[in-house]
Nucleic acid binder design. Structure first.
Length: 816
RNA sequence: GCCGAAGUGGCGGAACAGGCAGACGCGCACGACUCAAAAUCGUGUACCCUCGGGUGUGUGGGUUCGAUUCCCACCUUCGGCACCA
């Protein structure tokens, strides 16, 4: 009796059965190769988004494919559960962040289960659980012990809406807005905790061990921003050294003035009494401005003369020292030598304030440069001119020879600068892992002893409308004793950046309840590193950079091993609303996955998300296109559950054709899984189904080839549509449970082989004829067959071809 | 401004070593079934055409017997960076 395809019945049925049987439990098994597949964990915002489905279900399909290929696969899931939205809910709706977070997690677990993914829920980790953040704190202490965590007063970015500092990476775009809430950040001078990610910059620039998208490596490379150059020491007339960094030491003889950042510590000292008022007015004005105003690249250069002079160490010339806000205190030394002839910014400044412009580089083949005629700086490399002893040095040697000259004379040295800053991890918020440090008036900052971890967050907290951290306001929590002298002391009330928690979650999945350390070393030895990591490209310069740093720092402490934590990375694109805009509640274009699952079933939603897009690109949700997938799934159901026509004798040729299509599809789909090309996996399965429908009418269903096709079909379907595949395999066909424990089918190359091919005949590059020829036809035979073609004869019209190109088993091009 | 990626039918997309452009699907048209509609099934579907053929993968050039694919320039869209010395 044919049944109707009813995903509402079969999907929960199998989800329950798989879970009860522990089908997806990942256990150490040294006899099998392991595969650690990881997809970025969600923030428990309350509801799963269709974007989560888009990111996770193809990852799941691929993890399932790896499992069928003999790998012992771990595919864990958890929650990045600390963070500001929980506190905002607390302030707005008077719900405790813990309550809000854990209610959301409970809901999202349910939603995640409806995907039918092979998550191993026994390995679930939640970063806001004390048993998790115990070890976030412990990692902080290890970094502190190894001098990779330190406290420093520095100008930092502050989000006035979130009431907290942010890492440089969390300030987005030219508008310099908060990564979370989009509010423009302001600059504050604060004492904060930092991690020394800059100790690892050179290693972080090495991507040779990684199979990552080039784009991701490039973004990290740009973010780190390595520049090679020289450090040169100038001296003021009073004898104070001013260090500058330059990428163009070869232009040193063209330095006609110096510029200090307004915050530079020497500004006050070198300013002469006559310039004092002007300098003070200027610096005060600059410091008043927002970063956006100050760092706008199109604004006209401003600055003021200090009255002081410095000596250029290569020619002993006195050059004026200016203060200007186009020099940033946060990069290099906060001071520059200005070479207006060869740097556009210095050029604009010099023109505006009438400072000398002196060309010292003559690029090859260019007109001789003269200061009067220049309309812009000449940044190109070239022969050194007007450069004392180095005059005449060719462009390709200028850089090295100048550095050698500086080192010989003790006035400078080779130097490398980076754009990246140390990672600011202090957050003035409640809902995060406490920074386990104690301040004692006598002993200074002291780490919390490891046996006193975790420092627990207090539950009894209140929020003031000012948005100040409740930890700071708590009456007793911060009061403690100094671990060193036993005297009265105070806890650090700042918590850690949540990126700290997510820098090691892949390690917590190894053993989420282990209490002797952050993870069980036996699990580490078997499962790490992560073999395949998938997620959004927006995490490239934050989470992914932090995670790599974390792994390398821990490796140097002997905690982790190997060069990298995540070997292979793939980024999926983004699903937009049906209007092509980013989905958001305010636009009202949000697609709710629960609704879609309710309407079509999880298998259809999974397959549509795989079929409709290039996974790496994404695109707008299209509710029309899903009907193609609905039809396809229904046609699978019908073909596999309805009786096939009988009576007709099978045709050998059709049997051969079916087997060929089956095995060709298997080859194609195997490759597509490896390459993350999910759309052609589905279209391949659609094509094969169409072929099965075709031969069904031709007596083939009574044959062994038909049974083989059905079996291979369900195995290939299993990773993408796990429920219907299981239902058909186990319940309809009565094959041994579970389809998800079957091996990936073996390709029969003989069956996949074509025995004749369509030879394309071109005349002058245009297709004129097609011939059917046997596989293995020789080049000579191919050529002759093509020339015998009537159509070719007509074009030749008795003439000899000028040239005949033969591509074996593909094409002949006859040039007349 | 700098760096990078991408532009293919009405639409999503395929073409994986430079060798049949448009697989698969949506949509549309026509047909079958039906009193009718939906669902389902079948056929067709890049454009132009005088039915010989001609044109066509953002635009213009180049390399090649042959280019969606390689090279150069430009346009558009998206992503990253942005006074980084």
């Amino acid at each position: 009796m044919a049944r109707i395809y009813n995903p509402k019945e079969i999907e929960p049925k199998w989800q329950t059965r798989w879970e009860a049987d522990g089908l997806y439990r990942a256990r150490i098994d040294p006899s099998r190769p392991k595969h650690y597949a990881l997809t970025m964990l969600p923030y428990p915002s309350g509801n799963l988004h269709i974007g989560h489905w888009y990111a996770m279900t193809p990852s799941d399909a691929r993890a399932r494919f790896m499992r069928m290929n003999g790998y012992n696969v771990m595919f864990p899931m958890g929650f990045d559960a600390f963070g500001l939205p929980a506190e905002n809910a607390a302030i707005q709706r008077n719900i405790h962040p813990k309550e809000w977070t854990y209610a959301n997690i409970a809901n999202m677990r349910k939603q995640l289960r409806s995907m039918g993914a092979m998550f191993d829920w026994e390995r679930e980790a939640v970063s806001s659980d004390p048993e998790y953040y115990h070890w976030s704190e412990w990692f902080f202490l290890q970094l502190y012990k190894h001098d990779l965590a330190y406290r420093r007063r520095a100008p930092v970015d502050w989000c006035p809406k979130c009431n907290t500092t942010l890492a440089r990476e969390q300030v987005i775009g030219e508008e310099r807005v908060c990564e979370r809430c989009g509010t423009p950040v302001i600059r504050k001078d604060l004492e904060q905790w930092f991690f020394r990610i800059t100790n690892y910059v050179d290693e972080l620039l090495d991507f040779s061990q990684l199979d990552w998208p080039e784009k991701a490596a490039l973004m990290q490379t740009h973010w780190i921003g390595r520049s090679e150059g020289a450090e040169v020491v100038f001296h003021t007339q009073q004898g104070d050294p001013i260090e500058v960094f330059t990428t163009r030491p070869d232009t040193l003889w063209g330095a006609t003035f110096m510029v200090l950042a307004p915050e530079h510590p020497l500004v006050e000292k070198i300013t002469t009494p006559g310039q004092k008022d002007a300098v003070e007015v200027y610096t005060r004005e600059v410091l008043r401005q927002t970063d956006i105003q100050r760092e706008a690249t199109d604004k006209e250069k401003t600055g003021v003369f200090t009255g002081g002079y410095a000596v250029n160490p290569v020619n002993d010339e006195l050059i004026p020292i200016w203060v200007a806000d186009y020099v940033l205190m946060t990069y290099g030394t906060g001071a520059i030598m200005a070479v207006p002839a060869h740097d556009q910014r210095d050029f604009e400044f010099a023109r505006k304030f009438g400072l000398e412009i002196r060309p010292v580089i003559q690029p090859e083949g260019a007109e001789p440069i003269s200061a009067e005629n220049m309309t812009e700086a000449i940044p190109a490399w070239g022969k050194m001119i007007n450069s004392g002893p180095l005059t005449g040095t060719p462009g390709d040697q200028a850089f090295e020879r100048t550095i050698a000259y500086l080192e010989e004379h003790g006035t400078g040295k080779r130097s490398v600068n980076y754009r990246i800053r140390d990672w600011l991890i202090s957050r003035q918020r409640y809902w995060g892992a406490p920074i386990p440090m104690i301040f004692c008036q006598e002993c200074g900052w002291q780490p919390v002893p490891e046996d006193q971890l975790p420092v627990l967050l207090p539950d009894d907290v209140e929020w003031l409308p000012t948005g100040e951290s409740p930890l700071k306001l708590h009456p007793t929590w911060k009061k403690t004793t100094c671990p060193n002298c036993g005297g009265e002391a105070e806890r650090e009330t700042d918590t850690m950046d949540t990126f700290m928690c997510s820098s090691w979650y892949h390690l917590r999945y190894l053993s989420p309840h282990y209490d002797q350390g952050p993870f069980d070393p036996r699990e580490y030895d078997y499962w790490m590193p992560v073999d395949t990591y998938t997620g959004g490209a927006e995490h490239t310069t934050m989470h992914l950079l932090y995670t790599r740093f974390f792994h390398k720092a821990l490796r140097d402490m002997g905690i982790t091993r190997g060069p990298e934590p995540m070997l292979q990375l793939r980024n999926q694109g983004q699903i937009l609303g049906p209007d092509g805009q980013r989905m958001s509640k305010s636009r009202g274009n949000v697609i709710d996955p629960d609704e879609q699952v309710d309407r079509y079933g999880a298998d259809v939603v999974r397959c549509y998300l795989m079929f409709g897009y290039r996974w790496s690109e994404g695109g707008p949700w299209n509710s029309d296109n899903i009907s193609g997938v609905v039809r396809w799934i229904n046609r699978i159901w019908s073909l596999f559950t309805e009786p096939s026509p009988t009576g007709q004798a099978p045709d050998e040729k059709e049997i051969r054709k079916l087997r060929r299509k089956v095995h060709q599809t298997l080859i194609q789909i195997t490759r597509d899984f490896k390459e993350f090309e999910f759309n052609t996996i589905i279209s391949g399965l659609m094509e094969l189904l169409n072929e099965m429908y075709r031969v069904r009418e031709l007596g083939v269903p009574a044959t062994a080839a038909w049974s083989e096709a059905q079996e291979i079909y369900l195995k290939m379907l299993a990773p993408v549509a796990p429920h219907i595949a299981e239902e058909l395999w186990t319940d309809v066909f009565g094959k041994p449970y579970s389809v998800h424990q079957q091996s990936w089918p073996e390709v029969d190359l003989e069956a996949a082989r074509e025995d004749e091919i369509t030879l394309v005949i071109q005349v002058n590059g245009k297709v004129r004829d097609r011939l059917t020829v046997p596989v293995g036809i020789s080049e000579v035979e191919t050529r002759e067959a093509a020339l015998r073609s009537e159509i070719v004869q007509k074009y030749l019209n008795g003439r000899q071809p000028r040239k005949v190109i033969v591509v074996p088993e593909k094409l002949v091009n006859i040039v007349i």
